[in-house]
């Protein structure tokens, strides 16, 4: 069977120009921010694919494009073999889209405060005109809450419980793929563990596939089967989890792993990384990482490296071995 998600040469531009009149008066050119730049990757069925990166890496944008909240500027996305941009059969697209759900970062903003929990959970079904009798109760129990909670409102729940409700809502659609955008970054550590465990259990029970978007390497290391590292909208390394954490190939990945605080790093003296993430409207020429890269050579400033198979994964670096 083919992979569940196939992303090919994905590009997404945002127009971040000043308003038209200001542009004319101040003689400024149009400003285009390329949030996603020629990204390709596949997600195998029933696996967890993690996208990691710092702010401006385009990880959330990719997630939104895959669930259909944003259209891509260029490139193709096939989910379950269907490309929504080129599929003539509308019914097929609709059926495919039901199977993609999303869990958001902020458990407070992702539930409508005026809706009862039961209605919130049933929305994937009712929004499409279906009946959802008893579904919410069943799902609430499945995510570790009480079926009687259907008549409560979101404000009666803690952050962790709300994220469980979001998970229940995603499950209501009987999804194949769940895009999780920083699902635990708003939660406390002890609660985060509960939610991550629940997600692992549900994945086994329902045969789910996760696209896991996170900036937190420790969570990625715990959850992911495959990890893709993004920098400034470009995929720069992709490898199975063990390979990536044991033997990172790209200098940026190395730096990220080195910079992340370690629980057993008592008194560790880290050589702090050089520089900051560049302005994404004017990205560096060649390899986007070259101004901060400790091993950059002349070629890196002129030519953009493509992803190439090296070892167990793919990496976009001329100097990686």
């Amino acid at each position: 069977m083919s992979d569940l998600v196939e992303v090919k040469n994905l590009v997404r531009d945002f127009d971040v120009s000043a308003p038209w009149l200001n542009r004319v008066l101040e003689r400024k050119p149009k400003a285009i921010l390329q949030a996603v730049s020629n990204v390709s990757f596949n997600i195998a069925r029933n696996s967890v694919y993690a996208l990691v990166g710092e702010s401006g890496s385009g990880k959330s944008t990719i997630g939104k494009i895959i669930v259909g909240l944003l259209p891509p500027t260029a490139g193709t996305i096939k989910i379950d073999g269907i490309d929504p941009a080129h599929e003539p059969d509308k019914a097929k697209i609709a059926a495919m889209q039901v199977g993609i759900q999303m869990i958001f970062q902020d458990p407070y903003a992702s539930l409508n405060p005026r809706w009862k929990v039961g209605d919130i959970i049933a929305e994937p079904v009712t929004a499409r005109g279906g009946k959802a009798d008893g579904l919410a109760q069943k799902l609430l129990e499945q995510v570790g809450l009480s079926g009687a909670d259907v008549n409560k409102y979101p404000h009666e729940f803690s952050g962790g419980q709300r994220q469980r409700i979001c998970i229940a809502r995603a499950l209501a659609a009987e999804p194949k793929l769940i895009v999780c955008d920083e699902p635990t970054s708003a939660l406390d550590v002890s609660v985060q563990a509960q939610v991550l465990n629940l997600m692992s259990d549900l994945r086994e029970e329902f045969g789910l596939t996760y696209l896991f978007i996170s900036h937190d390497l420790t969570i990625v290391q715990h959850m992911a089967d495959t990890v893709g590292v993004l920098y400034l909208g470009r995929l720069i390394e992709e490898a199975p989890r063990e390979a990536l954490f044991a033997d990172p190939k790209h200098p940026y990945t190395k730096m990220l792993l080195e910079a992340a605080p370690k629980l057993d790093g008592f008194g560790r003296e880290v050589e702090p990384p050089k520089g900051e993430i560049p302005d994404p409207i004017h990205p560096p020429t060649g390899c986007a990482y070259h101004p901060r890269c400790p091993i950059a050579v002349d070629r890196c400033t002129k030519e953009r490296p493509e992803m190439e198979q090296k070892g167990k994964g793919r990496v976009a670096c001329f100097l990686a071995v």
Partner: peptide, 20 residues
């Protein structure tokens, strides 16, 4: 025990029941 690093990949995390 509930921090993901402690579980060292793949294994279930230890969780404290409930919330503060």
């Amino acid at each position: 025990a509930s921090t993901p690093l402690a579980a060292k990949g793949g294994k279930r995390l230890n969780q404290i029941p409930g919330a503060m």
